[in-house]
Each structure stands twice: as C-alpha cells, then as structure tokens.
C-alpha cells in the first residue's frame, strides 16, 4: 500500500447531476474512491457509466447543465504532513483562481482523442508554452526550453522542430505523446488519463502505456486511468474502481478484482473478455440486456434488471451500500449482506 498510507486525493460520495430540460441525469451518483501517491487507480465501466464525468468533476470542468450536487473531493495540499491539510475541490468556485492553479498544476488531464484535444489552429509549442507560463514564472524562452525538454522526455524525435508543428501533422502515437508532454509540463502530482489509448492501434497502445508507467515512476505521480479496457487495467493498475450507472459497484486491489470478483457486474464484465484458452467458435458471453436510458434508472440496485443473481423483492426495492468482501475490497451488493 502507499508509502504513508494517506491518499493524495479522496473522493467521497460524489454526485454530479445534469439538468437538461427533459429531466435529471444522475451521471455520477455517489462515487467514492481514493488515489494514492505513486500508484495507479483504474476506473472501469461501460460507456456512459460516469467515468469521464467523474474526471471532469475532479477538475471542476463539468459543462452546463451539469453540476456537482453533493459529496466532497479532498486534495491533499502539496508537501503537507498534516492530514487535515486538504482542500475540498467540490466547494471551490469553478472559475476561481484556486481551482485554476490546481488544473494543470496539481492535476493534469489526458483525453482519448489527441487529434481533437489540440487546437487545430495553434502549434503544439504555442499551447505548451502558454500552459507553462500560466503555472510558472518562466519567461517565453525558458518556457519553450522546458516544452522541448518535455517533448524529448516523452520520446518525440527532433523535439526542437516538432514543437512548432500542429497536431494534425503528427502521427496518432506522437500526438498522444505530445498530449502527455503537455499534461506533464508543469509536473502535476496526479495525472488523470481518460481512455488514453482507445484511439490508438495496439502497438502504439503498448508504447503509450509503457511511457505512462515510466513517467509515473520518474515523476512519482499518482495516475487515475479511466478505461473500459480490462486488459489495460490488469497491466497498469494497483487498485480498481468498477462503476455502473454513476455508482461505484466494486473496488479493491487489482488482483482481488481479477481473481476474486464479488459483484455480479464485475464478474459479468470479466467473463466478456475474450480468452486465448477458450475453445474455438464459442460465443463470447455478454451482459444480458443493455444499459438503461439515463432518464429511466431502475429503482433499487441499478444493475438488478441485468443481474443473473438478482434477489427479487430486495434488489428492486432498495439500493445496496458498499460492504467489505475481502482485504481492501468492497462490493455494493445484497449478496454480501451480513444479516439478510
């Protein structure tokens, strides 16, 4: 576990709802997890389970009509030894100076699509120098020097020339490397990578994941890896959070999640990974049904209509809270109710 046992970031019962005219969408509905320095937390789940909104909530960049309606996001202050020295990001003014220092300075974000994550009309260097100058006192020349250095660090050849190029001039892999260089250029303590390899081909994926691991060790950062790719999770993560319809259904150490999954949803997810040992021409198991429409959340446990182990009269009545199911592992499921 972590060096001093205290998380650098602690998300408590986070609720982020969207209020379009048609009704309320509970994109994140009571998510809790911790991020420890130097370690990697994986957040997994299907599309629309609230992974990305969780990431945006942490940085307070949720777009209207969404907003955080409850919960806390405690970020430990830099160099703080006093455990009480945290700041609740959920209470900050999203346009204020304090959160702006944290964005990019303490917590950086890497997106799925590196092509559209860069401005189409500004060079990569322009965006890097701008960010470095916002967070440091470096002058233009020094900021550019650091930007070139960062591009070299992420393995971009001839960084002094690439820096003046535009995102569309780079290949997909180089583009994502440049995005990572941009995110890390102010040495953040936490890197949130939202599907960082989804848009890349498999070879490039492996390279980018290697790079992330290497940089994490070098910079001693915490990494929050958001993905629906369980292979990536197994390879990269120390702890795993499984989300379904805005709720954390199971969390625990990566080995426990993969070898002793407790929540029926986690089990179903793991069953749907193709295995090289499976006999040929067998149908890959899928999760029955589909994700409910966001305006039509089922009552009780959100997974009960698709759950193979559903307990009628219980799961459709009330929502289960997290219950300990192993060392450092919890699952929100009535199967593990101590006194049924």
């Amino acid at each position: 576990m972590p060096t001093d046992g205290r998380p650098i970031l602690e998300v408590r019962e986070l609720r982020t709802y969207f209020f379009p005219e048609e009704g309320t969408v509970k994109a994140v509905d009571g998510a809790s997890f911790e991020v420890f320095p130097g370690r990697t937390l994986g957040i997994v789940g299907e599309s629309g389970c609230g992974k990305s909104v969780t990431a945006k909530s942490i940085l307070r960049i949720v777009e209207r009509p969404g907003r955080i309606v409850g919960g806390a996001i405690h970020l430990r202050r830099e160099g703080g030894t006093d455990p009480a020295a945290t700041i609740d990001l959920a209470t900050l003014d999203p346009a204020g100076l304090e959160i702006r220092h944290i964005r990019g300075g303490d917590i950086a974000l890497v997106f799925q699509e590196p092509m559209t994550s860069f401005s189409p009309v500004h060079s990569i260097g322009n965006q890097m120098v701008e960010m470095i100058r916002v967070h440091t006192r470096l002058d233009k020349a020094a900021a550019r020097e650091r930007a070139v250095e960062m591009l070299r660090l992420v393995g971009i050849p001839r960084p002094d020339r690439r820096i003046d190029e535009y995102a569309f001039q780079l290949s997909g892999g180089l583009r994502q490397r440049a995005m990572i260089a941009l995110a890390l250029s102010c040495h953040p303590r936490i890197l949130i990578a939202d599907e960082p390899t989804t848009a890349l081909d498999v070879t490039t994926q492996a390279q980018i994941l290697d790079l992330l691991r290497h940089l994490q060790a070098q910079e001693r950062m915490a990494v929050v890896l958001i993905t629906h790719n369980l292979g990536v999770v197994a390879e990269m993560c120390d702890e795993v959070v499984v989300m379904y319809l805005g709720r954390v259904v199971e969390r625990g150490p990566v080995d426990a999640i993969f070898h002793a999954p407790k929540h029926p949803y986690t089990r179903a997810l793991l069953r749907s990974i193709p295995s090289i040992r499976a006999s040929v021409r067998t149908k890959l198991p899928t999760i029955a049904g589909s994700i409910p429409h966001p305006y039509n959340r089922p009552p009780g446990c959100p997974f009960h209509p698709r759950c193979p182990d559903v307990i009628r009269g219980v799961c459709d009545r009330s929502e289960p809270g997290p219950r300990p199911v192993g060392p450092g592992q919890t699952a929100s499921c009535f199967l593990y109710e101590e006194s049924p």
Binding site: I61, A95, R100, H122
Partner: peptide
C-alpha cells in the same frame, strides 16, 4: 465550445475568457 480542445484548454488552468477567446472564438 464542446470540442475536446476547449475542455483540455480549460483543464490546463487558463482563465475562462482566455480559453474562450483564444481557442473556440479563433476557430
């Protein structure tokens, strides 16, 4: 306004008016 490059610009800690005027307005 909803494009990822605007969101990433915001996530880099730029002030809101700078995000808007430099990136989406320019495009």
């Amino acid at each position: 306004l909803g494009k990822p490059y605007v969101v990433t610009a915001r996530a880099r800690g730029l002030s809101e008016w700078r995000v808007i005027l430099k990136y989406p307005v320019r495009v």
